[in-house]
Design a binder for these strands. Structure first.
Length: 419
RNA sequence: GUGGGUAUAGCUCAGCUGGUUAGAGCGCCAGAUUGUGGCUCUGGAGGCCAAGAGUUCGAAUCUCUUUACUCACCCCA
């Protein structure tokens, strides 16, 4: 017996409607905001991710699926969706299109991690990336897009956490201040944090160790060290969010783990998913395009984890509309009528009706059960009476009522009733 | 990468201190008189009890190893 690789999941026929529901909502929302779809390959040259995400990050340093192809080129399965879009933007000179350019995508992303609740080695993201605008209005727009989508899909208890990690200039000052603050307690921190202190002191802030939590209390916050430009950006974003009517909390602790972020960072977080509560993460990355070889271009974007989102919807009991149901099931009264049923089904399908019939030689009763389970909206039995009279009783499976319809009018009948 | 936990039918789980043919619920299939679902009742199919080794007269049950899964840390979606 073969088993599925660790950290991956099949989407089964009985569940695929959930994905379709979420993806349709995402597409509709993207369209509402005039974002257009972009598709990039599942793998890229490894160098792209080293440059853009940052070699010191966990994602790059230990989580990438990297391999050599037959010509010895180093390729990597995409560990996130943003860098490939940046590569494509530069490579295809998309700045020649009118800016701002709003894009969205669906993509699998691969990270070699230890799987747990809400964390997989292959997961899927709905992502949005907007290029060309440095305005805080665009940050708000992108957040509003995410918010609209999440609302549309039916999640309620998500909290928007907002922070600014400044530009490289303010961050440098902040790191110095933070180090100075932590200096006296370095010896009392956990071993992880001692390392973090040296490499990236900001990471000490979200340590869960009680000791470190205590040490960190009262630490300077990046948000207090913003330069005038970054501060104005943040203030502007806040007022724009108020205009959109989107609630948020400033959370000085959120620091995204990818090096390309600047200024605005945000997360939509839930408490219903255990410790993997981040359903959507994003922010501004004004230096990414340049680091990938293009000309300096301001950008904002986010990624939403589809598995986590669907898990959340299941948990809070949101109804995901199942569109994978036959409109009508045509049941042969006995095997002799199978061909007549095929003929009727053929006609119905020609008219755009999703029609199904028996392929198992089952009794009428068993066919009704089957039709019920597949969610068929109507059922009609075809036998001697119907062929003789040219009319059939069509049963409405929702309320059990029946109506008599002429055999050559079934398509019109179902079409008029099905919406 | 670091720690816990769990492995028995398709799914969720019972199987007490080791004792004969391994159980339930759900699901699946089929019946409950004549061509009609959802409720109820009856019957049926389906398990090398994760794998390997050991202890024992005897192991799903005890011990060890392996593997898988899972949760938390880390990181992220």
């Amino acid at each position: 017996m073969f088993t599925i690789p660790k950290g991956t999941k099949d989407v089964l026929p009985r569940d695929s409607y959930k994905w379709q529901f979420v993806e349709n909502a995402a597409r509709e929302t993207a369209k509402l905001f005039s974002a257009r779809e972009i598709r990039t390959p599942v793998f890229e040259y490894t160098e792209l991710f080293l440059r853009s995400i940052g070699e010191e990050t966990d994602v790059v340093s230990k989580e990438m699926y990297t391999f050599n192809d037959k010509k010895g080129r180093s390729l990597t399965l995409k560990p996130e969706g943003t860098a490939p879009v940046a590569r494509s933007y530069v490579e295809n000179a998309l700045e020649a299109d009118s800016l701002p350019l709003k894009m969205f995508y669906f993509t699998p992303v691969f990270r070699y991690e230890k799987p747990q609740e809400g964390r997989l080695r292959e997961h899927h993201q709905f992502g949005v990336e907007v290029y060309g605008s440095a305005s805080y209005l665009m940050d708000a727009e992108v957040i509003a897009l995410a918010n609209t989508f999440l609302k549309k899909v039916g999640v309620k208890d998500l909290k928007l956490n907002l922070n600014s990690i400044g530009c490289p200039e303010c961050r440098k000052k902040y790191n110095e201040a933070l180090k100075a603050f932590l200096q006296k307690n370095v010896d009392n921190m956990c071993s992880n944090c001692r390392e973090r202190f040296a490499k990236n002191p900001m990471r000490v802030l979200d340590c869960k160790e009680e000791n470190c939590k205590a040490i960190v209390k009262g630490a300077p916050r990046i948000i207090d060290f913003l330069c005038d430009g970054c501060r104005a950006h943040m203030n502007g974003l806040e007022s724009a969010l108020k205009t959109y009517g989107i609630d948020y909390v400033i959370n000085p602790d959120i620091v995204r783990g990818l090096d390309y972020y600047t200024k605005t960072v945000f997360e939509f977080v839930t408490t219903s998913l255990g410790s993997q509560g981040t359903v959507c993460g994003g922010g501004r990355y004004d230096n990414l395009v340049e680091s990938v070889g293009g000309k300096s271009t301001p950008c904002v974007g986010f990624g939403i984890g589809l598995e986590r989102l669907i898990m959340l919807l299941e948990k809070v009991g949101t109804e995901m509309i199942n569109t994978n149901r036959p409109d009508i099931y045509i049941a042969p009264q006995a095997g002799d009528y199978a061909l007549q049923c095929v003929d009727i089904v053929k006609t119905l399908r020609g008219g755009g009706i999703c029609a199904e019939t028996d392929f198992m030689g089952r009794s009428v009763k068993a066919q009704f059960k089957y039709a019920d389970k597949t969610g068929a909206r109507f059922v009609a039995v075809i036998g001697g009476n119907e062929i003789g009279s040219g009319a059939v009783e069509i049963k409405n499976m929702l309320d059990g009522t029946k109506e008599t319809v002429r055999l050559d009018k079934i398509t019109e009948y179902v079409r008029s009733k099905k919406q």
